[in-house]
Amino acid sequence: MARRRGLAGLEQVLTELTTDDVSDEPDAALLRAAAAGDADAVALALRAGADIEARDEHRRTALLLAATYDHVAVAQVLVAMGADPDALDDRHDTPWLVTGVTGSVAMLEALLPARPDLTIVNRYGGVSVIPASERGHVDYVRRVVSTGIDVDHVNDLGWTALLEAVILGDGGADHQEIVRILLAAGADPTIPDGDGVTVLQHAEERGFEEIARLLRP
């Protein structure tokens, strides 16, 4: 697979290194290497027979560990070898969902070739753009809205990405830019929260004047 995909470095690891250095059980070695960010050790563990979908005590796969700790090179190896970007752990996180929390555009790009399911939701019922908007991950939001993700998805709290950016944001430059990006991507500012309060009303109540200006018709 590495040869067919033109991944010369990975091919070299898989063909030239020996598995004698894999002193641990291969699945455990794979998970440890993924968490540590050691792409060569990941490839070596796979060559030694590790299950690419092996789970740790929290049901995290190697790819989920790589995404959690933002080890992009490890993720690239695992994606090239067919790792599942939609594997759920015991907190209902997937490798893809984690990128919305970390805000890593590089990891997002590493996972896209695996065609992650953008509709899988986290434990709050949200897609990745929602926590990214809350946390002020401007570059991530700018990139993820171009993937076809539903910018109007409503989570279990009754909040869209726009609502979360205002309700849980600080009203500063980053959250202002996220509101601009979401609106430009077609987000509907008239969708209210579960109590019927609109994002404009929330912005006005919180004194976020620039955001309120952006939201007014």
Results as ranks from 00 to 15, higher is better:
M1P: 13
G6L: 03
G9P: 08
L10V: 12
V13M: 09
T15A: 15
T18M: 01
D24G: 14
P26C: 11
A29D: 04
L30K: 13
A35Y: 07
D40F: 05
A41Q: 02
A41H: 01
A43K: 04
L44Y: 00
A45G: 01
L46I: 15
L46T: 08
A50W: 03
A50Y: 04
D51E: 02
R55W: 02
D56L: 00
E57G: 14
H58W: 12
H58V: 15
A62V: 08
A62Q: 11
L63H: 03
L64W: 07
A66Q: 00
D70A: 15
H71C: 12
H71K: 10
A73R: 13
V74Q: 05
A75S: 13
L78G: 15
V79K: 01
A80G: 15
A80C: 09
D84I: 06
A87K: 09
A87P: 13
D89G: 15
D89K: 06
D90S: 15
T94G: 09
W96P: 06
W96E: 06
T99E: 06
V101F: 09
V105S: 09
A110L: 00
D117M: 12
V121Y: 14
N122L: 02
R123P: 00
S128G: 12
I130K: 12
P131W: 02
P131Y: 03
S133K: 05
E134G: 04
R135K: 15
Y140F: 15
Y140G: 11
V141M: 05
R142G: 03
V144S: 06
T147Y: 01
D152Q: 14
V154H: 07
L157H: 14
G158V: 03
T160R: 09
V166H: 05
I167K: 12
I167Y: 11
G169V: 00
D170K: 10
D174F: 00
E177A: 10
L182M: 04
L182H: 00
L182T: 00
L183R: 09
L183Q: 08
A184W: 06
G186W: 00
A187N: 12
D188P: 11
G194C: 02
A203F: 01
R206Y: 12
L214Q: 05
R216S: 10
